[in-house]
């Protein structure tokens, strides 16, 4: 399949062709992850940071594998429950990866993993001041997204549904409102997408990109699903750029009515 590539876009100073960012967790094997990354065509990979026990190994090997992809690395602050934790972890990430990119997550509720809007905005302001390029994970709340954009975030990343649920956009109206009210912001739908049709749906709304992990990694065939999402993201973006037709309430024939045979013929 040779799809027309979507228009390149820019985030945090990087010009990208792929509009699909991909997580590195939950794959059946490291090789499956590498193959899915390759199949997706992604240029941005998210990674986490956790305590390193030298006797258990790890760390360096995973990092080497990720670095070999040549992708931009977007480390996250997943699991942080406070502004201080998130800011400290962001600084640790910047030293490890030599990059100011940070996916800011401040958890507000452990059951839904709903981000803490107050902590997220406060941490975003601090990190922007400290020179970070902040990709802020948030809900679909318009005012919080506005505050994050005003704070200088490189990207505002609303959820479609809670992390890992795969339920797709629970509130398309709210997502469409974000796009309409923040036309100049880089908006990336992060979390909750389960199927390629979900990705196409939000891309048709005009989102700049999507960020996926579980939907690809936990698919029966992650490599094939990575390809499916890539095609859907491209299709959705092309559709947005093409401006979909207006919906109508009533049927309207697409075949001309002029010259209709048997017109007004009485049986």
């Amino acid at each position: 399949m040779d799809l027309h590539p979507p228009t390149p876009w820019t985030v945090a100073g990087a010009t990208l062709t792929s509009r699909m960012m991909l997580g590195t967790a939950l794959y059946p094997s490291p090789q499956a992850m590498a193959d899915a990354v390759s199949a997706s065509g992604t240029e941005v990979l998210t990674v986490g940071l956790r305590r390193l026990q030298p006797e258990l190994g790890g760390g360096e090997a995973f990092w080497q594998r990720v670095r070999a992809t040549g992708c931009h690395i977007l480390p996250n602050t997943a699991g942080c429950h406070s502004v201080d934790e998130a800011v400290t972890l962001a600084h640790m990430a910047r030293e490890i990866f030599g990059s100011p990119w940070i996916k800011l997550e401040v958890v507000g509720d452990d059951y839904t993993l709903q981000p803490d809007p107050f902590g997220t905005v406060e941490a975003a302001r601090t990190l922007v001041r400290d020179g970070f390029q902040v990709f802020a994970y948030t809900t679909d709340d318009l005012v919080v997204a506005q505050r994050l954009h005003e704070a200088g975030c490189a990207a505002v990343m609303p959820w479609a549904a809670p992390i890992g649920t795969g339920r797709g956009p629970l509130n398309p109206y709210a997502l469409a409102t974000l796009r309409a009210r923040l036309p100049d912001a880089v908006l990336v739908v992060d979390a909750g997408l389960g199927r390629p049709s979900h990705a196409a749906q939000v891309m048709e709304l005009g989102f700049d990109a999507v960020l996926l992990n579980t939907a690809v990694a936990q698919a029966g065939d992650p490599v094939r699903m990575a390809r499916a999402f890539a095609a859907a993201v491209t299709a959705g973006r092309l559709a947005f750029e093409a401006t979909p037709m207006a919906e109508r309430q009533t049927a309207q024939p697409s075949t001309p009515t002029v010259g209709q045979p048997f017109w007004h013929a009485v049986p």
Binding site: G48, R51, L52, W63, H91, T214
Partner: peptide, 30 residues
Amino acid sequence: NGRFVPRSQWSLHALGEGDRVDVVAPVTGG
């Protein structure tokens, strides 16, 4: 103690009883 210590400071940063040291490395993540 929850504060980032840059690599350049490791050899200078004095530790005492009660200090909490965290060492993190890259792992898979979404």
